[in-house]
């Protein structure tokens, strides 16, 4: 193990603090903007509340009262996100479990070819898929609906979900299945009594990753929704490009958009890191 003397340790610490400031400053600037009066926003670099400026809830109150689309967008983001994350985790989990426990042959495709085919769907640029999906959804009456968004997000998250779940199920020794089978357990019992409980941390991590991608997603929502089913990122982008000068209101909306994920990262930080990097670099 490389050892540092105390001068080196503390200079390293200072360098990392500098990067931490770069990470935090844009966030801090936006969040404090939501609490500043217009005069303070235009006056100069007001940084510290109660010293440089007197915090106000004016903008928050106005956004909540005046922009009904914000509350609706929160509901849309939550519904499409939760539904698609659950569906992607479930369907991806089924595929991941199957691919680690059975031998498949689809034409010339074997298990690992199927796994790679599933994963490779993730790299397709959305702009290629979204034009035909728009036409399909128009025919099916799914444009500008939560159901439509949830369906697209399930497809969009499925490759990652299947891949992560496969990594988790792979870590559960197949011997456990074998011995349960010898004891007379059915496939269903093996799945519900052995595989699922052992994979629980993986299921939670996969669900969170899918939820994050769906919550933050932009291009599908941009093209497939226009009023009723708009999500939070779309409201932020729409306001930002149409009403440039209302910086404070849009800052409130953007803060609402990032708040849940900041919270999740603070609460589950290390577990999330473990989930994201599962099966990496061994």
């Amino acid at each position: 193990m490389i050892r540092l003397n105390s001068v080196q340790r503390w200079s390293l610490f200072v360098a990392l603090v500098l990067w931490a400031i770069i990470v935090i400053f844009p966030l801090y600037w936006m969040v404090t903007t939501t609490f500043k009066l217009r005069a303070d926003i235009y006056a100069g670099p007001a940084l510290i509340p109660w010293v440089d400026f007197v915090p106000t809830l004016e903008h928050w109150a106005r956004v909540v009262a005046r922009y009904q689309q914000v509350t609706r967008a929160m509901a849309n983001s939550a519904v499409a996100g939760l539904a698609s994350a659950a569906a992607a985790t479930f369907i991806g989990g089924m595929a991941g479990y199957g691919l680690t426990r059975f031998q498949y042959k689809l034409g010339f495709l074997r298990n690992r070819d199927i796994a790679f085919w599933i994963l490779s769907n993730r790299v397709l640029p959305p702009i290629v898929l979204v034009l035909p999906i728009f036409i399909m959804f128009r025919t099916a009456g799914l444009v500008d609906s939560r159901a439509g968004l949830a369906i697209v997000y399930t497809m969009f998250n499925l490759p990652i979900a299947a891949w992560l779940m496969l990594e988790y199920f792979k870590q559960i020794p197949i011997d456990l299945d074998e011995s349960a089978k010898v004891d007379g357990a059915t496939y269903m019992q093996i799945l519900t009594r052995i595989a699922l409980p052992l994979a629980r941390p993986g299921i939670i991590a996969t669900f969170l990753v899918c939820l994050m991608f769906a919550w933050n997603e932009f291009i599908y929502a941009l093209i497939l929704t226009f009023s009723r089913a708009q999500t939070l990122p779309l409201v932020v982008a729409g306001q930002a490009t149409q009403h440039g000068p209302q910086w404070w209101d849009i800052a409130v909306m953007a803060t609402i958009t990032i708040a849940p994920l900041l919270l999740v990262t603070i609460l589950l930080g290390n577990r999330l890191i473990a989930g994201l990097t599962a099966g990496w670099g061994q």
């Binding site: 844009p26 966030l27 933050n216």
Partner: peptide
């Protein structure tokens, strides 16, 4: 972890 749209707005 944050929505790219919100990050864009921040900058």
């Amino acid at each position: 972890m944050l929505a790219p749209v919100a990050v864009g707005y921040m900058w």
